[in-house]
Design a protein around this nucleic acid. Structure first.
Lengths: 357, 357
DNA sequence: TTAACGCCCGTGTCCGCACACGAAAGCAAA
DNA sequence: TTTGCTTTCGTGTGCGGACACGGGCGTTAA
C-alpha cells in the first residue's frame, strides 16, 4: 500500500520554493505581506506536492479557542433531547483537544419567551458557532438573521428552516418514517382488520415530526388503496392523565374486537404498552417511535412489535463534528443529512444498543 | 458547562509534586529510574488531579511508528470484501497522523495455500498489529499462536475464533439475521404458502455466515411452528452458471404456483432478482443480504422487498480504530462487537446510503 | 541628507509531550 | 580522600506548525 501522505512539511516547502518558512505560512493562511514573486513560487510548489497539514500539530500550536453553543429544549431523564444532549457531551469530550469548548443552553419548548431569552443570551456571547433546535420558527429566524450579520455560522438539528443559510442539518425524514411504519404494520393485514391510531394532545405546538409521521402513514394507505380494506380508528389521549388514557383504550377495545395494530407517532408508546398489558390486550401489534429505555424494555418483552428509531445522539455529535470540519479541518461536508430510519425488533435491538460507535 | 479537562500539563504536575518534568515523564511511562519518594509524590498528585494527556501532542512528539497489516480475501469490484477494504483505507487516512501505517495483504479465499503464504509473509514482517479474516480456521490458529508468542496483538473481522486471545471482533450475528429475515418474510404469510429457499453451491468451504443465517431462518420456523402451515422448497444453484440457474428457477415456478417468498442467504440476490424479472415472476417477495450496488438498485425498483445489511466498511474501520485506542490512546474497548442488523426497504435505503459517518 | 513609513521577509518562541544525554548524588572499595 | 560505579534526576532538543516581533530595504516627504 502506498503512503498516503509522503510527509511533506512546511520546512520542505520553504526549501523547495526558495523562501522562508514564514513566507510559506503567510501564503497558507492568506495573511498577506507576500510579494507576487514568492507567492507564485510557493503556490507552484503547493500545486505540485499535495501538502496535507498535520492537524495535530496545527491545533497544538494554534492558540485559537472555539466556543460553540447549543440551543435546545430542556429535558428530563430519558427522552429524545436527553440523547441529543449526550451527543453534544461526547463531542465536547472528543474535540476539547482541538480547542473547542461546548456550552449548552436550554429553553422550555412550551414557552416561546424562554427561547427568546436564551437566544438573546447566546447572541450576546458572540460564540464561534451555534447549534439550534428550531422549535419556534419565527424566533429562530430572528436569531439566524442576527447570526448571519455577525458571520457566526450555525447548524440546525432535528428540523430545519430552509430560508436561512445554515451549515448543516441533521434529522430524520419523518414523513418517510411514518410511511415505513405503515408498510411494516399494515402490509399484511387481513381484510376488515381494525387499526388503532393513538394521538397525543400536547400542551405546546403540535410537533412537526409526529405530524409528518402521521402524514407518511396515511400516504402509504393511499398509495396501496387500503382505505377500503382496513378500518382506521383514531383516539386522542392526554399528555398527562394516564388513568383517563387507560380508560379510553379500554373502551375502544370493548367496542372494537378486531384491532390488529396499534400505532402511535410519538415516543410514549411505552405507556400504551403498559396499558395494553394491564388490560390484557396483547393480541394487537404495537408500533412506536424512539429508543427510550422503557420502550426498549417493552420491545424486548414482546409487547411492542416494532420501534422506529433515529439516532438523536449521533445527530448532535455529527453536527458538532461537521462544524469542526468546516472551521478547523477545512473538510468537505454535506449540508442536509437525513439520518437513517432504523427498524428495531426484539431480535436486533440488542446489537443495535451495544454498538456504540 | 464545566470544563472537562482543566488543562493540566506535565509541567504543572512536576511543580505540584516538587520534582522535575523528566521524573513525571518516567512515572507516567513506567520507565523506571525513579526513587520511591518521588514516585509516591507524583502518584499522589496524579491521584488527586485527573490528568488527561494531550493525545495530539503525544503522537506528535512520539517517534514511534505503528505498522498494522490486514489479512483478508482478495476481491473484485463491488462485493463484501471490497467494502471491508474501503473501511481499512478510510482508517489509514484518518490515523496516518498518529504514525500508523496500514498495509493490506490479500489471499484467495478458495485456496488455503495462498492464505498460508500470506500469513507467513505477514509474520515475517513483525508488524505491530494484525487484522485477520479467519476464513481458514486451522491455519488462522497457527498464525495466531505465532503472533501471541511474539506478543503481536491481532483482531478478527467478519467471524471469530474463540480459543485465541484476540483484541476485538467485529461482525454480524448471522444466526440472528437469518431469524429476522424469517420474521420479516414469513410473519404474515397465509396458510399453505410456498417459500423458496435458494442456496448457492460454492467452490470453497461453505461460508459460515450463510449457514448460520439459514439456521436462524429455520429456527424462526420452529419457534413459531410454521412447518405445518408453510411449504418450504429448497433449490441449489451454481456459483457460475447463470443460464442453468435461470432455468432451474423457471422450472420451480412452473411446478409451484403459490410461491409467496423467495429468499437467499448470500449477497447474490440481485441475480435472482434479474431472473425473476426476466421470467416475469414478480409476485413473490424477494429477500436477500448485503448492500451491493446491484442489490440496492433492485431494492429501489421494488424487485427486492427487503435487504438485510451489515456494515462491512464500519467493521474494518472500527477494528483499526480500536487497535489505535488500545495501543496509542489507552482507551477501554469492547472485545466482541456485533454489528447491528440493518433492515432496508425501498423507503429507507436512500437515507441509509447517504449517511456516511 | 535623513527621518519616517510601508512592504517583505526571516527568525524565535511556544504548544504539550517524548526521549536522550549527561550531571548530580549516594555509596563502596581502594 | 580519591576513584569508580550505580541510582536518580534535570535539562535540552525536536515533533509540525502558528504567530509575533523585529529587521532590511526601498520610497517619499521634510
Amino acid at each position: 500500500m502506498k503512503e498516503i501522505n509522503p510527509k511533506i512539511r512546511i520546512k520542505d516547502i520553504a526549501i523547495m520554493a526558495g523562501v522562508s518558512e514564514g513566507t510559506v505560512d503567510r501564503v497558507l493562511h492568506e495573511r498577506g505581506d507576500v510579494s507576487a514573486k514568492s507567492l507564485e513560487a510557493v503556490n507552484k510548489v503547493l500545486d505540485e506536492i499535495d501538502y496535507t497539514p498535520n492537524l495535530l500539530a496545527r491545533s497544538l500550536a494554534s492558540k485559537k479557542q472555539y466556543r460553540f453553543v447549543c440551543l435546545f429544549p430542556a429535558h428530563q431523564n430519558a427522552d429524545y433531547w436527553h440523547s441529543v444532549d449526550n451527543g453534544f457531551t461526547q463531542a465536547a469530550r472528543e474535540f476539547t483537544h482541538y480547542n473547542v469548548h461546548i456550552e449548552k443552553r436550554y429553553f422550555n419548548q412550551y414557552d416561546v419567551l424562554s427561547f427568546v431569552e436564551a437566544s438573546n443570551a447566546v447572541f450576546e456571547q458572540k460564540p464561534d458557532a451555534v447549534f439550534i433546535a428550531p422549535i419556534f420558527r419565527k424566533e429562530t429566524l430572528d436569531l439566524c438573521e442576527k447570526l448571519t450579520l455577525e458571520e457566526i455560522p450555525f447548524s440546525f438539528i432535528d428540523s430545519l428552516i430552509e430560508e436561512v443559510n445554515f451549515l448543516t442539518y441533521y434529522g430524520q425524514n419523518s414523513f418517510q418514517s411514518g410511511y415505513i411504519a405503515a408498510k411494516l404494520s399494515l402490509g399484511s393485514l387481513p381484510n376488515h382488520a381494525q387499526v388503532l391510531i393513538v394521538r397525543t394532545q400536547r400542551k405546546g405546538a403540535v410537533s412537526n415530526q409526529t405530524l409528518n409521521r402521521y402524514n407518511g402513514f396515511m400516504q402509504f394507505i393511499k398509495d396501496n388503496q387500503l382505505a377500503g380494506h382496513l378500518e382506521l380508528i383514531s383516539v386522542e389521549i392526554k399528555d398527562n392523565d394516564e388513568l383517563a388514557n387507560k380508560e379510553s383504550i379500554r373502551n375502544i377495545f370493548e367496542s372494537n374486537n378486531n384491532i390488529k395494530t396499534v400505532i402511535t407517532f410519538n415516543s410514549r408508546v411505552h405507556q400504551l404498552a403498559k396499558h395494553l398489558e394491564e388490560l390484557n390486550l396483547t393480541d394487537a401489534n404495537l408500533i412506536g417511535y424512539d429508543l427510550l429505555e422503557q420502550n426498549v424494555a417493552y420491545l424486548k418483552k414482546g409487547s411492542i412489535s416494532f420501534l422506529i428509531a433515529q439516532r438523536p445522539d449521533k445527530q448532535s455529535y455529527f453536527t458538532v463534528r461537521d462544524m469542526c470540519r468546516e472551521l478547523i479541518f477545512r473538510q468537505e461536508i454535506r449540508k442536509i443529512n437525513y439520518v437513517p430510519i432504523d427498524i428495531l425488533l426484539k431480535e436486533n435491538i440488542e446489537d443495535y444498543m451495544h454498538f456504540v460507535e
